[in-house]
Amino acid sequence: DVEPGKFYKGVVTRIEKYGAFINLNEQVRGLLRPRDMISLRLENLNVGDEIIVQAIDVRPEKREIDFKYIP
Protein backbone atom coordinates (compact mmCIF):
# COMPACT_ATOMS: atom_id res chain seq x y z
CA ASP A 1 0.00 0.00 0.00
CA VAL A 2 1.18 3.49 -0.87
CA GLU A 3 1.15 5.91 2.05
CA PRO A 4 1.22 9.72 1.87
CA GLY A 5 4.56 11.15 2.93
CA LYS A 6 6.58 8.03 2.11
CA PHE A 7 9.21 7.86 -0.62
CA TYR A 8 9.15 5.32 -3.44
CA LYS A 9 11.35 4.34 -6.37
CA GLY A 10 9.47 4.50 -9.64
CA VAL A 11 9.91 4.45 -13.40
CA VAL A 12 8.71 7.15 -15.81
CA THR A 13 6.32 5.43 -18.22
CA ARG A 14 4.68 8.34 -20.06
CA ILE A 15 5.18 12.09 -20.32
CA GLU A 16 2.42 14.57 -21.10
CA LYS A 17 2.22 18.38 -20.91
CA TYR A 18 0.44 18.09 -17.56
CA GLY A 19 2.92 15.69 -15.96
CA ALA A 20 4.80 12.41 -15.96
CA PHE A 21 3.25 9.05 -15.15
CA ILE A 22 5.33 7.08 -12.67
CA ASN A 23 4.94 3.34 -12.15
CA LEU A 24 5.94 1.94 -8.78
CA ASN A 25 5.08 -1.56 -9.96
CA GLU A 26 2.69 -3.13 -12.46
CA GLN A 27 -0.40 -2.31 -10.40
CA VAL A 28 0.55 1.07 -8.94
CA ARG A 29 0.86 4.19 -11.07
CA GLY A 30 0.64 7.87 -10.24
CA LEU A 31 1.18 11.34 -11.65
CA LEU A 32 4.04 13.75 -11.06
CA ARG A 33 2.86 17.23 -12.04
CA PRO A 34 5.30 20.02 -13.01
CA ARG A 35 4.21 22.09 -9.99
CA ASP A 36 5.34 19.24 -7.72
CA MET A 37 8.87 19.07 -9.10
CA ILE A 38 11.62 20.82 -7.17
CA SER A 39 14.84 21.30 -9.19
CA LEU A 40 13.59 19.01 -11.96
CA ARG A 41 11.88 20.01 -15.17
CA LEU A 42 9.44 17.87 -17.12
CA GLU A 43 11.53 18.21 -20.28
CA ASN A 44 14.50 16.68 -18.45
CA LEU A 45 12.62 13.43 -17.83
CA ASN A 46 12.64 10.51 -20.25
CA VAL A 47 10.52 7.39 -20.44
CA GLY A 48 12.40 4.66 -18.60
CA ASP A 49 14.07 7.00 -16.08
CA GLU A 50 14.11 5.72 -12.50
CA ILE A 51 13.40 8.40 -9.91
CA ILE A 52 12.55 8.65 -6.24
CA VAL A 53 9.18 10.30 -5.59
CA GLN A 54 7.15 11.12 -2.50
CA ALA A 55 3.46 10.21 -2.38
CA ILE A 56 1.57 13.39 -1.48
CA ASP A 57 -2.05 12.45 -2.17
CA VAL A 58 -3.41 8.91 -2.30
CA ARG A 59 -7.01 8.29 -3.39
CA PRO A 60 -7.47 4.50 -3.44
CA GLU A 61 -11.17 4.74 -4.29
CA LYS A 62 -10.20 6.42 -7.60
CA ARG A 63 -6.93 4.50 -7.93
CA GLU A 64 -5.08 7.83 -8.13
CA ILE A 65 -1.77 8.88 -6.58
CA ASP A 66 -0.08 12.28 -6.81
CA PHE A 67 3.68 12.40 -6.41
CA LYS A 68 6.22 15.06 -5.55
CA TYR A 69 9.89 15.08 -6.54
CA ILE A 70 12.37 16.32 -3.96
CA PRO A 71 16.08 15.92 -4.75
Rank of each mutant, 00 (worst) to 15 (best):
I22H: 01
P71H: 09
N44W: 14
E16M: 14
E26A: 15
E3N: 09
I38A: 11
I65G: 03
I65K: 02
N23A: 14
G48Y: 06
P34Y: 07
I70E: 11
L40D: 05
I51G: 00
E64C: 06
P34Q: 13
D57H: 14
N25L: 04
G10V: 05
P60S: 11
K9D: 04
V12G: 00
Q54K: 10
G10M: 03
I70P: 04
D57N: 15
D66W: 08
A55D: 01
A20I: 06
G5K: 06
F67K: 02
R35N: 10
Q27R: 15
I38N: 12
G48K: 04
N23R: 11
L40W: 04
R35S: 11
R14Q: 12
G48A: 04
Y8P: 00
G19K: 03
I52Q: 06
T13R: 06
I65W: 07
Y18F: 13
V47G: 01
V11D: 01
I38M: 12
P4K: 15
D66E: 06
G5L: 09
K68A: 15
K9N: 08
L24M: 04
L31M: 08
V11A: 05
L42F: 09
I22M: 01
L45I: 11
M37E: 03
F7V: 06
L40K: 10
Y69S: 03
L42I: 12
R14E: 06
A55R: 04
Q27H: 15
R33M: 04
E61P: 07
G30Y: 03
G48F: 06
A20G: 02
K68D: 02
K6R: 11
I51E: 00
D57P: 03
E61L: 09
D36H: 13
L42R: 03
V58N: 06
R14L: 09
I15S: 01
Q27W: 15
V47I: 14
G19Q: 03
F67L: 11
E43Q: 11
N44H: 15
I65L: 09
E61K: 11
F7E: 06
E3G: 06
R63T: 08
P34S: 10
D49Y: 07
R35Y: 08
I51A: 01
E16T: 14
R63K: 14
G19V: 05
D49H: 04
S39F: 12
R59Q: 05
A20Q: 00
K68W: 04
I52M: 11
D36F: 07
D66C: 06
L24D: 00
E43D: 13
G48M: 06
L32K: 01
Y8H: 02
I65S: 03
D57L: 11
V11Y: 14
R35F: 07
V58H: 07
N25T: 12
R33K: 08
P4G: 07
L45S: 00
I52A: 04
V47L: 14
L45E: 00
E64Y: 13
Q54W: 11
D66N: 09
F7C: 10
E43S: 13
M37I: 06
P60F: 09
G30P: 01
